[in-house]
Each structure stands twice: as C-alpha cells, then as structure tokens.
C-alpha cells in the first residue's frame, strides 16, 4: 500500500513528559495529514498506552531509556513501529488479552490494567519481537473500520 500521508519519525527519552511531548507531536502531524478527530482520539489512546507501558515497565528505573516511534499512513491503515531499549516483555511475549472486571464491589474496582485492553480494542494487529536487545512493537490501526465504528455509536 502506498503511503498517503506524512512519514513520521521521532525519538525521545522514556519519561512521562517525553511521552506527552511525543504524543502531541505525532497527533499534530497526523491531524495535518488529514485525519479527523474521532480517529485521532483512538490513535492517541493506543499510542499513549503503548508509550506509558514502556515508561512504566520496560524502561522503568532506566535513566538511559530511549524510545523511537515511526508511523506511516496508508489508504486504510496507520502503521506504527515503536522501539525501546528497555527490558524484554515477560516471557518475551505480549500480555494475554484481558479486560479487567468492573462488575464488582466498590473496594475491588480496578485502578489499573486497562492499558493493553485499550490497545487491543483499538488496533487490528499488534506484534512484539525482541531484536538486538530492543523491544520492537508493530501496531496497525484500520482507519475505515474505526470510522464506521464511530459512526455506529
């Protein structure tokens, strides 16, 4: 598929403020590339959760933690590759899909564990591999389906 929008590439330190600046940058450039706000919202959720996971888990306590994001728009998909120099994912694999249960007593309501559920809900494909001591995450988000979903709601 031929790219139809900007190629985006950026690197930043694996911190919460680095993540925030990177998100603003990527979302701004995708907006300039013509994506509408519902779609941008979904993309921002996916990227935020992906980058938060890296900061909070893979690169936690690692002062030299670095993240690189590459993104490309095609007719139908946003393709994103995220690389970090943090620790490998447990078991060298993606966490299994799990939606935290919310039908419970107030005291038991989950305050976390939503990140991967959100990523899985909003992406069509996620792949993880460990390559040269780096985590490589490949995500694709199908633009049209998400648009039609949004219209259905």
């Amino acid at each position: 598929m031929a790219p139809v929008g900007p190629r985006i590439e950026l690197g930043f330190k694996a911190t919460e403020t680095g993540t925030r600046a990177a998100l603003t940058d990527v979302i701004g450039r995708l907006r300039d590339g013509g994506l509408e706000s519902t779609m941008l919202g979904c993309i921002e959720i996916v990227l935020a959760e992906t980058l938060n996971n890296i900061v909070e888990h893979a690169c936690a306590g690692q002062p030299d933690g670095q993240v690189r994001v590459r993104a490309r728009l095609t007719d139908l998909y946003l393709l994103v590759i995220v690389v970090d120099n943090g620790r490998p994912y447990p078991g060298n694999r993606l966490p299994p899909y799990a939606q935290p249960a919310v039908a419970c007593e107030l005291d038991s309501l989950p305050e976390g564990g939503f990140g991967w559920a959100l990523i899985r809900e909003l992406t069509d494909h996620v792949q993880y591999r460990r390559h040269r001591n780096r985590n490589v995450l490949t995500l694709s988000i199908f633009l049209e389906r998400e648009l039609s979903r949004a219209f259905c709601r």
């Binding site: 919202g41 921002e44 959720i45 935020a48 959760e49 938060n52 989950p110 305050e111 976390g112 939503f114 990140g115 959100l118």
Partner: peptide, 8 residues
C-alpha cells in the same frame, strides 16, 4: 484526553 492512568 485521558489515559488509563487518569482513568485509574
């Protein structure tokens, strides 16, 4: 915008 940390 809110992420899962904000939701938590």
């Amino acid at each position: 915008f809110i992420d899962s940390s904000g939701l938590g």
